[in-house]
Amino acid sequence: MRAPRPTPRPAPAYLADSLPGRAGRPLGFAHRGAGNERENSLAAFQSACDAGFAYLELDVRTTKDGVLVVFHDETLDRVTTGRGRISDVTWEQLHSVTVGGEPLLRFADLLTALPEARLNVDLKDRAAAPAMAHLLAEHEAWDRVLVASFHDSRRRLFRRSLTALGHAERAHGPHRIATSGGAAAIAALVLLGPLGLTGWLRRHALDIDCVQVPIRHGRIRVVTADFVRRCHAAGLPVHVWVVDEAEEIERLLDLGVDGVMTDRADVLAEVFTRRGLWPQR
């Protein structure tokens, strides 16, 4: 006698508007605020919200004194007026540093400034995992944030940190925080999925709620019709980064992807408008 299939666990509220197979609407993410000259700044995020984005992609790193800063690079050199590693300076020392003329941004301040926005957060260092858990608990921002990282170990540390703070249900229960898979999780889905193991991986090995992937990785094309179909069959929404060309956005939407991250807010908004998906706010 065949064993009954396990009951699918409910999806986090963050993803409820875009679940595959439930008439979900594809999500448009403003990558780092879609403001290339002032990336990851409050001005960039505010501009994206004003343009109709409800979902913002961003990165966080921790300073020497443990402050969670919205920033991508390990060092300040590429995009700011400062120099050196963020982890070597305190938040106070970053007071006069700017990116595109805008001040650097604490994650706690972003939560307060844009209370309606949903935030797709990439943990860029290990210390960011427990710091994120503390801030989400402090602000009760449970349904507003999806936690991602290229390193699956940081996602697992984030969940352990929630449990240590007394929020085990937010780590693994029916009201958990949404997370996406890192490099190892995605590699497993790409390589083992064609063997019929996508559902098994999702249920027993990965503990993730969606996949966020590039169109290709090196010579390997990640986002194919079969990959999207397999992920959807396992209940995993597929978000693709970073796509700036209208034709490519159209092609991905036709494949059935559930979200697109872009640096070109205007291009994505135009495509989504033609499809009756805009604005999202």
Rank of each mutant, 00 (worst) to 15 (best):
R2W: 02
R5E: 13
T7S: 15
P12K: 04
A13H: 09
A13G: 09
L19S: 09
G21N: 03
L27R: 05
H31Q: 10
E37A: 13
N40E: 04
N40H: 03
S41V: 03
A43I: 03
A44I: 08
Q46L: 08
S47F: 11
C49W: 03
A51F: 02
G52I: 12
E57Q: 05
V70S: 00
E74S: 13
L76R: 14
V79L: 15
V79S: 15
T81C: 07
G84M: 13
E92H: 14
H95P: 03
G100T: 04
E102H: 06
L105F: 01
R106M: 14
L110H: 04
L111P: 00
A113G: 08
L114P: 01
L123N: 00
D125W: 15
A127Y: 09
A129L: 09
M132I: 01
H134D: 14
L136V: 12
A141M: 11
W142S: 00
D152P: 13
R154V: 07
R154I: 07
A164T: 13
A164I: 14
L165D: 02
G166M: 13
A171R: 06
H172A: 15
G173N: 10
P174R: 15
H175D: 11
R176L: 06
R176N: 05
G181M: 03
A183L: 09
A184C: 08
L189F: 12
V190R: 04
G193M: 00
L197C: 07
G199Y: 04
D207H: 00
C210K: 01
V211P: 00
P214R: 08
R216I: 13
I220N: 10
R229N: 09
L236I: 05
P237Y: 07
P237G: 07
E245T: 04
E245Y: 06
G256K: 00
G256M: 00
D258K: 02
V260S: 03
T262C: 12
D266I: 01
V267Q: 01
V271Q: 03
V271S: 03
R275V: 02
R275D: 04
P279H: 06
